[in-house]
Design a binder for these strands. Structure first.
Lengths: 106, 106
DNA sequence: TTGACAGGCAGGTAAAGGCCTGCATATTTT
DNA sequence: AAAATATGCAGGCCTTTACCTGCCTGTCAA
């Protein structure tokens, strides 16, 4: 998995919106996705391209149409490899601060 | 929680690295964090500023030093509100594609 | 086969992002 | 008090990014 591409792809609200739309209904065409995007088709194409490079979506051509499918795997991996470790044992934020301050006699 | 700030903050590899360092050892000063960052102190400050705006870290001043603490809450919320919903019932990606193709007689 | 429809490709522009230098401030140490 | 240390602030530069317009290609249907 390419962490960086995934995080960068998720950085844009429009791209997250596209993922939301695909989550509502998987397998939509470019045209369908454009309807909910308030920008030109070409811009949507670019966003979808970045999502595909990040492996967050997969596509299948059907005649002159192109169907877009969300791929949950990289998202899960981001969680599993990256986010989860920050949760573990780190919920004691205030405890850490307090401890640090006390260690130095403030 | 401000989704957008969090995702944008996570988009940069240097900022993710900073979070990694804080995960290794919580409560480090700016100077300490700089040692592992291969860029000027001022740049690190900017990155830390974005992380703080995203509420991914909290800071405490101690004399002339500034201690940085990681805050796992927004990361958990990103997972809980956003990532998790893409996992649920979406692991059947290939199933979806196959179904869509069959529905149209390909 | 011609017109309509779905999508692809190639620049061009304006804004945002990331990094730097230079200087200022606040705290500690000598 | 003066020097050293830790951080803050401002501005400039260059690259990337997110849009757009304009035009081309492939597919389907009349």
């Amino acid at each position: 998995m390419d962490d960086d591409r995934v995080f960068r792809a998720l950085a844009d609200p429009n791209r997250r919106r596209l993922l939301d739309r695909l989550c509502d209904r998987n397998g939509q065409t470019l045209g369908q996705l454009c309807e909910s995007m308030d920008m030109t088709r070409q811009s949507v194409t670019q966003h979808l391209g970045l999502l595909e490079q990040a492996n967050l979506i997969s596509t299948v051509r059907r005649g002159r149409e192109k169907l877009h499918f969300i791929n949950p795997v990289p998202l899960y991996e981001v969680y599993a490899r990256w986010i989860r470790k920050f949760e573990e044992g780190r919920l004691g934020l205030l405890h850490d601060i307090k401890q640090e301050l006390e260690r130095n006699g403030n």
